[in-house]
Amino acid sequence: MLAASDEDGGFHAPSIAEFFPEAILFAGTPFEFNRIHLIRIIAAVVLLTIFVLAARRAKLVPGRFQNVIEMILDFVRKNIVEDIMGSERARRYVPMITTIFVTILAFNLTGVIPFLNLAGTSVAGVAILLALWVFVAYWAAGIRQHGFFGYLRANMFPPGVPAPIYVILAPIELLQILIIRPASLVLRLTANMVAGHIILVLCFAATHYLLLEATPALKPIAALTFVGAIAVTLFEVFVALLQAYIFALLASVYINMSLEEEH
């Protein structure tokens, strides 16, 4: 494979350019519309269609389709939000966390769908928006619970710490609630999707090159990269679920930390 990448233009090595396709509309303006935006719109339409259909057809006795949808919704409600916050606090935040979870899941899954082949979350925009939403939610929860200065004090000066330590601890904690939490949400999701896409492209491109263009001696290696492509695709589906889960889980954790009496 390394040898392959050294050869001529036949092998397409994935690069960061993958994530910046050419504009379809409004090139050069802040409203530039490219393939990723198209993918996001398609994913959003499909997601809405599925859930609106499920809601319209919802019956007391669920069929297969409704069962699957209910499993997703129950998973978010019980295994994420209620597990972390308790069912009383959870009621307020279940809609928000559910929205975050299914949005990220849908946008992640576009990465393994043919003709889309790029996760809607593989550039940071969506993740930034969702992280901002989480940021506002946990600040609002904290301020409502403790008041503005109360919230700051609870976070920056946790009890049970020797006074001199606060010199280091307070700025770190402030940085934590201001930047580190939302930024880590964004980076974790985006980096995972970028890495996943690059590995997928590598497998696909290598298979293609080895099978069709490389010297006959190299062709059997294509089987290896193809099996790799299957494995990575499955892994990407898993990562899509995992990242949606982690984002929703951390959002719940951050909101719950704001609501705790003693930090």
């Binding site: 397409h12 769908i113 790029l118 499955l234």
Partner: peptide
Amino acid sequence: LQLFIPPFYDWFWSAVVLVII
């Protein structure tokens, strides 16, 4: 067409993989 769909090797092989899965 390149604006709307990914490169051939990308969608073709992902389709093959997806069909197998």
